[in-house]
Design a binder for these strands. Structure first.
Lengths: 186, 186
DNA sequence: TGCATTTCTTGATTTGGGTCAAGATTCGTC
DNA sequence: GACGAATCTTGACCCAAATCAAGAAATGCA
């Protein structure tokens, strides 16, 4: 879900195969929603083409981009999928995108057929956990400038992918502040 | 690990049984370390008595309390345990505490013996993921005051358990600020 | 190409939390 | 109970980011 530490098909080939064999091919136009905030989203996908952003909307109407998924990565609100609760985020296509989609039931029966599959599911969850955890710890320790620099190091062409305004939202600062951070560094 | 959304023995009875059957009984005095930051910690425990805090130390020597574990809950740096990397946090006893301890190998062989056990492990990881994820989203949306009020709602007697100084660290504010927040609410 | 819209930058001002400092209160220990 | 240490509160001041505002640059589209 994150700029660099995403969950890629390459890391979970057996899972990727499942999506390739059985996934329903879905094409979304730019801006179209794959999942809506506050709804239950019991499906996920493997991104074949394009890109997705995860957006959280507060009660006051403020929106924050909290993550991304690109081609070759899995996309979906894994947590909402697991526990069946309404999703905290919406997921929308950033451009014309294509994915292979499976619903949670199919994933659960896949897990259930084999202890190795269960283990795979565990490793997937552990992998995601490690990433979210690291992001959380960054909240405790890093300044906006550090977050910006660390992000650039991880994904140097991030600026070709998203606007500064959106990047600011991801870094949890105002666009003006990001603009000033960038001037400071130059 | 958190004040309310911890992983309890009651939620994972089969796992709790494993700890009760095979766990090594360890008694720690107040302040003693169960796990050290920057080291690999490949064991975890079920807290029988007492309480533990998770502390992250920055390079500048600032310390933040990032979580807790109480009696009836599991304790350990699950992420460090899974991926074998050095831990981001230390875990220390807040008072004289007793726990039943297992190392990662035993847990892995437990998972490996049965598809049901693998599934249990998956659910555990998913459960943890959901919690850490919620904490992360809180970073994006909540003010210190909101974090304080939400914490009080979840764990009304938190103030009898930890000092305001420590609570401030958990809420990611200075003690003075927490003091002012409390005056504001009164 | 020209116009409208959005994004981006820059400056001025405000504000929330941090820092520093000084008491008050609580707690532990002898 | 008295003393010392730690915690807690309060005030004064500082600073980084938010807010407000205005103009420049880029983008989209007719």
């Amino acid at each position: 879900m994150d700029f660099n530490r995403y969950i890629t098909a390459a890391e979970f080939p057996a899972l990727a195969d499942l999506f390739r064999m059985e996934g329903r091919r879905i094409v979304l136009t730019s801006g179209a929603a794959f999942a809506r905030q506050a709804e239950r989203n019991r499906r996920c996908g493997l991104v074949v083409k394009g890109a997705f952003r995860y957006v959280h909307l507060t009660a006051e109407g403020e929106s924050s981009v909290v993550g991304y998924a690109f081609a070759g990565e899995f996309v979906g609100d894994y947590i909402s999928m697991c526990n069946g609760l309404p999703s905290w985020v919406g997921i929308e296509a950033m451009c014309e995108s294509e994915l292979l989609c499976l619903d949670n039931e199919r994933l659960e029966t896949f897990y259930a057929t084999d202890a190795d599959h269960e283990r795979l599911g565990r490793h997937l969850a552990e992998h995601l956990l490690a990433e979210v955890y690291e992001r959380l710890l960054q909240c405790y320790v890093s300044t906006p400038q550090e977050r910006y620099e660390s992000l650039l190091r991880r994904c140097p062409d991030v600026l070709r992918l998203v606007s500064l305004k959106e990047l600011a939202s991801y870094l949890r600062v105002r666009p003006e502040t990001l603009s000033r951070i960038r001037r400071r560094i130059r």
